[in-house]
Design a protein around this nucleic acid. Sequence first.
DNA 1: CTTATGACTATGA
DNA 2: TTCATAGCCATAA
Length: 106
Amino acid sequence: MERSFFERAHDVVRQVPRGRVATYGQVARLMGAPRCARQVGFAMHASPGVAGGMPCHRVVFADGSLAPGFAFGGPGEQRRMLESEGVAFLPDGRVDLARCAWEAGR
DNA sequence: CTTATGACTATGA
DNA sequence: TTCATAGCCATAA
């Protein structure tokens, strides 16, 4: 079975532990496509959702910003969900990558 | 084959 | 610091 780019992205995002966040570029690199951060984002959009085993809310921009136009029920909903998992936020409204950035194999 | 789109990232002003 | 633009590459038509 050939795994589409989507499925590979899903596979990597699924490995992100609770209370941790990963950047699109990081996910792309782990799946063997360091230049395909945008395609990862598109895969998230096309993902089955959190209920489908895809914690796409744990995937953020390289600077810790959350995805614009989010659709889990509202942008504030994603932040609430991440905080509920133990992710720290900065006063600017960005994720504290210095504390919650996910490292592969950990 | 080419063109258009996009939940990104890096760079410059 | 923030904002705008260019480059990147997979997928669809």
